[in-house]
Design a protein around this nucleic acid. Structure first.
Lengths: 158, 158
DNA sequence: GTCGTGCTACTCGGATAGCCCATGTCCGAGTGAGGGTGG
DNA sequence: CCACCCTCACTCGGACATGGGCTATCCGAGTAGCACGAC
C-alpha cells in the first residue's frame, strides 16, 4: 500500500507553481528535480482534470495554478493523483458468512468497515487542513531565498 | 493506493478466532467466508510472524490468537499484512533541486513530508485506538447470537 | 508604415510498451493422534 | 488390561505461476508567435 510516486512530484510542483505567474512547460518543471518529463506530464494532466491546474497549449504555454494556493489542500492533490477511493475497501465478505444477509449493505453495518472509515476520515481531515499556502509559508520561514531561487532556476530552464 | 484484500480477511478471521478456544485450521476459516484457502493461509502466516496468531501443526492443529483480543489493535493487523512503511514515501526529490543539499535528510526537513507524516500518524492513532475486543463488543451488542453462530458454523466446517 | 496571411515550432493530450507487486496455487516437511501389537 | 510403537493422515510453511496497475515513453492535434509580403 505505497502511495504513488506522482504524489510527491505533484506536491512540490504545485508549490513551485505558487511562486510563479507565467505558465511553465512540463520540461522546465521536470528538469527542476531531474524527473522524467513525459511521466510528470501525465501526473499534471490528472491535476488539470481535478481543476487544480490549468494548461495552456502552444509556445509560451505550460501549466499554472487554477486557484490561489490557499484554496488547494494537500488532500486535493492526493485525491487527484491517487483517486477518490478510501484506503480500505470493504468487499462485504460478511455476506458470505452465517446470519441474515438479504440486501444488507455491510459497508454501512460492518463494525470493521466503520472503524476503518473513521481512521480514513482522520487521515483526510489532516490532509484537508493543510494547504499549499501553509506549506509555502513554512518553507519561506525556513528558507527566505526559496521563492527567488525557484524563479531564477525556472527562468534558466525555460 | 488500495489496501490489500488480505486485511479484510485478517480482521474478520481474528474476530472469529476471538470466539474460539481450540485451534482452527485454514480450511475451516476459509470456508466460513468462501475464501481461497491457500491464499488465506498466506495471510495468516504473516499474522503469525507478527506475533498476533500462533500456529499448531498436525491433526487437530490450526491457528489461534496469540494474545487476548484486548491486546490486538486494528493497527497491529493492518501493519502485519501491509508492512510497517508509512503511506507516503518521501524520495527526497528536493535533493535534486537548487539550494544546499549536502547530507540533508529531507525526510525530516521537507515540509510536505512533515505534513504527510502528521496525517499518517492521525490514521495510525485511530487504528491503534480500536482493538479486536472493542469490535467484538460492538458486534455482540448488535447481534447477540453471533458468538454461538460462529462456533456452530466452525464446528460443522471442521 | 501597417495590416493580413501563412508558416513554424512549441506544448499539451492521449495512446502505447515494460516492470513490479499483489493475487492465486501447489507440493513438501513436520507432527500429533489413533490403532495395533506385545507384554 | 496396559504401555509402547508404528503408521497415517492432517496441517502449516514456503516455493512457484499469473494478472493488473504503476511506471515510463512516444507521437499526433492544436495553437500562439513570428516573419514575410502586399497594400
Amino acid at each position: 500500500m505505497r502511495m504513488s510516486q506522482g504524489v510527491e512530484w505533484a506536491l512540490h510542483t504545485c508549490l513551485n507553481l505558487s511562486w510563479l505567474d507565467a505558465p511553465v512547460p512540463t520540461g522546465a518543471l521536470a528538469a527542476f528535480y531531474e524527473l522524467p518529463p513525459a511521466y510528470l506530464n501525465k501526473q499534471l494532466q490528472a491535476l488539470v482534470r481535478a481543476g487544480i491546474l490549468t494548461s495552456i497549449s502552444g509556445p509560451r504555454g505550460g501549466f499554472r495554478l487554477a486557484r490561489p494556493p490557499e484554496a488547494i489542500s494537500l488532500l486535493d492533490i492526493v485525491s487527484a493523483i491517487e483517486g477518490p477511493e478510501e484506503l480500505f475497501r470493504c468487499d462485504q465478505i460478511l455476506s458470505k458468512g452465517p446470519g441474515e444477509h438479504a440486501g444488507v449493505d455491510y459497508r454501512q453495518s460492518c463494525a470493521f468497515a466503520h472503524a476503518m472509515r473513521g481512521a480514513d476520515l482522520a487521515w483526510r481531515r489532516e490532509l484537508s487542513g493543510k494547504t499549499v499556502a501553509d506549506v509555502r509559508s513554512d518553507v519561506e520561514r525556513g528558507h527566505p531565498g526559496a521563492p527567488a531561487d525557484t524563479r531564477a532556476r525556472i527562468a534558466e530552464l525555460r
